[in-house]
Design a binder for these strands. Structure first.
Lengths: 213, 213, 213, 213
DNA sequence: TATGAATGAGGCTTCATTCAT
DNA sequence: AATGAATGAAGCCTCATTCAT
């Protein structure tokens, strides 16, 4: 009824379809409110098949988290320009993050909103992911500014990025692009952290919003 | 059995007990996973009494949100030094926010983590609260910098504040104080927004005057 | 639908009704094939009430076993004439056993047929009960005959009693009475064990079938 | 995966494998708790093949009962020394029974414990088997003693034999041998039934002649 | 001969909610 | 003001069974 799937699909593809459906439903409803019935229908299969392949609601949710976390970290890792200045690395990482969040809003919501509020053991999985990101950002900040209080700054920056991603996802039609968001956040934060910076060159910083928009 | 409550408590007091219990349970478990049984037991009353006073799980949750939102906005409003400079207003508001969040972790979790992830109609109530805060911050930013992109900056700042509050709540024993958090955030953000600031050391940016006490 | 129970029954009585129904259903269907739906209907209550009072199918089954085991051991213990000769004690115990089994066929079936074939942990509970009975019988045999191989004889005697009880339960209309069964078994076994017995006096032995029938 | 079975096995062999697996699983778990999945895996084949050959769980269980019942009756029939005295016939039949039960514990459990507790129609099949055995024993008793109450005695004797077989199956390491069990039971019962026997020592009662080997 | 893919039906359990006192 | 007794509805999960190859 949901999707006009062809019968007799190989297992790997079915699993992907199920995970797609599950991510969407979990993101929209949350872990508890999502029903396996709804997920199965969204995937276009019967409930027992979901259990045959993914064992339980817990394991299904966990598989969703792991898949989306892997996709997000891969997107950011691939976006970061290795070898560039810390500032430029941060810029490119933010850009990768915002663009991934824009393209995969369900995955983003799953990680950011849902998985963190569900109790253990899921929250722990996401906490690890977030801690890695914070540590990465903290390292960049330390490399660039040698600032004290690096951890607080990193948490603030990550929180700001998350907030902007959520804002953009909920924004009406012409939502801010990833580039605009990254530029805003760099302007907002970076020049504050490295207050010595003379006149933040748009190109060096990754592009100010004025130059890019 | 849960709490050795005396029988025959006046209604207002009983309602407060119930809301206290409900906020704690909702914060810890989330809306769906919280059961009316657990809430009633935590409040030390029978379930029918909870229904007699608060009508339904939905209304109970809504009442929790409203009470905690009112408490949070009151705390911030009371903390803001009216008539001061925008910078100083922001500093004092952040301080009020962090201190309230530290003292009322369940209320903070309820608003920040749980109410936002539950579907409508609750998310809307919290979204309104957040929008008000963002608008207030945006106005301060505009007054101080005349910056374009004010809305993005406001979202970033609010997200940073939320992230720091969550970090502090989860931090081990000597958690950062509200003052430290506010100072970090002001340093991180404010001096970035008004790049012209001469010597943005934490004290100068965070509140140099009598407000420190 | 099942029983025209009056509403609002005190808990203790409701629990008894539920256990009665559960013993009957478990005895007839076995643990796995019995459904909580059928038990609830047989008890004349809704399923949630069964769970409210008895927690789970496992615990319900366990409660049935314990209740029926206690009833059976009490019936046998009360029937045994303490201080009498071993032979007479065995006779009176068998009589108590057969009469209890005849009056409580569901309880008997539950213990003898169903609980033993279900896996752990239930089988262990019944195994303990049976071991106690075998030990009691073995002691009587030893006291009376000083026989070697007492344990094997006790197992044989208990098995014979169980078989006779099952036969009587399944027999058509004029089923053998407890007295007849006990007399048959005493004739069958006792005089074999104490082959020295000269001419088993019906009264001393508890009554031969000819004398009693 | 379960058993490294070679592909393309002839049907008769495959059916035997399946029945072996099914008897083991049914004996261990009971009819309801045994799953076709577990049976198929234990047999080292896929589930559809089990259905192709044996049609349904009911028919599979029925086939198991019939095979094990036939094996048991064949074992007893082959063991009985035709033409010998009733006493000797009973002795040899018991010996055959105990030895078969010891060698085929799963088959024995299936017939004695599981098939009888499952509802119709299986219980009827086993009831027929048991009735035949009881009738055979009753005839021997009648032939030997001319006793009244022959049916009760036969039920008692069969029950005693079953109990001893179960005891031996559950006994620790040096379990009683079939010969020991048969001797105990003959001593216990036979000399009781025919109280006249002069010196019913186990050897005399159990089989004094060449049958001992 | 043999199997990977798939499902309708049903069972255990929990929960928000109400009734009668 | 307060509660013990009770239930309709819904969710997670498993199982016997079949289809298409």
């Amino acid at each position: 009824m949901a999707a006009a799937n062809s019968r007799r699909v190989p297992r790997a593809e079915r699993e992907r379809q199920m995970l797609d459906a599950a991510v969407a439903v979990f993101a929209r409803r949350g872990y508890r409110a999502a029903s396996m019935d709804e997920i199965a229908e969204a995937a276009g299969v019967s409930k027992p098949l979901v259990y045959l392949y993914l064992n339980s609601k817990d394991e299904l949710f966990s598989a969703c988290i792991r898949r989306e976390a892997a996709a997000l970290t891969a997107a950011v890792r691939d976006a970061v320009e290795e070898g560039a200045t810390p500032e430029r690395q941060l810029w490119s990482g933010l850009l990768g993050f915002f663009e991934h969040a824009a393209v995969h809003p369900d995955g983003w919501t799953l990680l950011y909103s849902q998985a963190r509020t569900v109790g253990e053991p899921f929250a722990a999985e996401v906490a690890v992911l977030r801690a890695e990101i914070v540590a990465f950002v903290a390292a960049l900040i330390a490399a660039a500014c040698g600032s004290r209080d690096v951890e607080a700054y990193a948490h603030a920056l990550v929180g700001a990025a998350e907030s902007l991603a959520g804002w953009a996802a909920a924004a009406p039609a012409p939502a801010p692009t990833g580039k605009e968001l990254a530029a805003s956040l760099m302007t907002f934060a970076w020049s504050g952290l490295s207050r010595a910076l003379p006149a933040p060159d748009p190109e060096a910083a990754g592009g100010s919003s004025a130059a890019e928009g």
